[in-house]
Amino acid sequence: MPKLSVIVPCYFNEDNIPVTVRELIANESRFPLGIEFEYVFVDDGSRDQTLQALLTARRQYPDRIQVVELVGNVGSYNAIVAGMAQASGDCMAIITADMQDPPELMVQMYQYWQQGFKLVIGNRQDRQETGLSKRMSQLFHWLMKHMALRNIPDGGFDFVFFDRQVRDEIVRMQERNSNIFYLMVWLGYSYVNIPYVRRKREIGKSRWTLQKKLKLFIDSLLSFSFSPIRAISVVGLLLGVTALLYGVYVIGLRVFAPQGPAGWTTLMVVVLFVSAFQMIALGIIGEYVWRGMDAARSRPLYVVKQVYDASNHSEK
């Protein structure tokens, strides 16, 4: 029977860990007999008691739970790559530590994997959350679907089940400043999409700040779309045509109405508009250049401080 590795990134989740572990272990009974389970929890530089809670859980289930302690906070997606690199399963799943995604859905995902699908996506058909956070998430995924990757499911996703072959490709690529879930779709494997309603968070407070959400949107858009650069070209062309027409108008005004108004206000508006566009264009180009430089430096996505596995204190 195959081995299933469940990767769980953790950041300030000390109160979630006991509940998360309990639900994941209980979920094993829903799978066919004989499957081997492995849980890879990655502590992404938490400064609370998350690591201690994970080590306590590992002492309860030493044959199932591995804990990867990173030196510092590198972001959820890089922490996931660290967990993927450590995982040894034939198939793998990624789930958040706050249990907003239903672990029982992994059973259906596993069945699709057995049918030969390399990637199974659980996408958020709806969310129990309300307010601005829900609206921003919907807008983010709508923009990504229409501007970058048209083959991603509606509603967004970060709950996936995939084959070891997909894992090998993601770990090999070491993509930085990107979206690891969109990267799985970008690889081109046929996938199955399972819609579900995401639960409201019951324990703890989300550390997914507005700043992090904006960075994720910029990273995702620039990683999978040339739309920003194309938009600069289109707007530049339109401004060029407008400038030409305005030049013809000014010349005509000079020839046929030499005593007409000087047009200082109009001139200032045009100068300010063009200057603003140039600064925005430079900013977008700078984002691309910085990402190219960041990739060229080849710095590691993460640094592992210690791995707590079957040997208890194996350092890697």
Score class of each variant (00 low, 15 high):
C10H: 11
P195Q: 07
G240T: 13
P9T: 04
R207L: 13
R164M: 00
V197Q: 14
M1E: 11
E38Q: 14
V21K: 01
G89E: 02
R254Y: 14
T209N: 05
Y39L: 10
L214E: 13
I152R: 05
G156N: 03
R297I: 14
E36S: 14
I285K: 10
A231W: 06
I152C: 03
V255H: 11
P258G: 12
D98Y: 01
Q278L: 13
K305P: 02
P195L: 02
R30S: 14
I95G: 04
L143R: 00
Y249N: 13
G72D: 14
F224C: 04
E69W: 04
A82C: 09
E315A: 13
G188M: 10
I7Q: 06
A26E: 15
Q60H: 13
D43C: 08
Q115K: 14
G89P: 01
D90W: 03
T266N: 14
D163Q: 12
V303C: 09
L222Y: 01
V197L: 13
I180K: 03
L143M: 14
L221R: 07
D168E: 15
Q86P: 07
H313A: 13
D154P: 02
V250S: 08
I280W: 08
W208A: 01
M279P: 01
G156E: 01
K316W: 10
D48W: 11
G89H: 03
Q111P: 01
D48A: 09
G263F: 05
M147A: 09
P103M: 12
Y11I: 08
F140D: 05
R167D: 05
I95R: 08
G292L: 14
P2I: 14
I80D: 06
D90R: 07
F162V: 08
I121C: 02
N78G: 02
R64F: 10
P300A: 10
R47V: 15
S275E: 02
P261C: 07
V255S: 06
C10Y: 06
G155W: 03
R135L: 12
M99E: 02
I7K: 03
V304W: 00
I25A: 00
I65L: 14
Q86H: 06
E315T: 11
S223Q: 09
S298I: 07
F41W: 09
G83C: 06
L210W: 06
V40D: 07
P228G: 04
W113A: 07
Y308V: 02
R127W: 09
K212Q: 15
P228H: 04
Y196S: 04
L244C: 13
G122F: 06
V8D: 00
L143P: 04
D90Q: 12
A148V: 00
F181L: 00
Q66K: 15
R176S: 12
I203Y: 11
E38R: 03
S29K: 14
R47Y: 00
I7G: 00
K118P: 02
P300W: 03
V192G: 00
V166S: 00
S206C: 12
L272D: 02
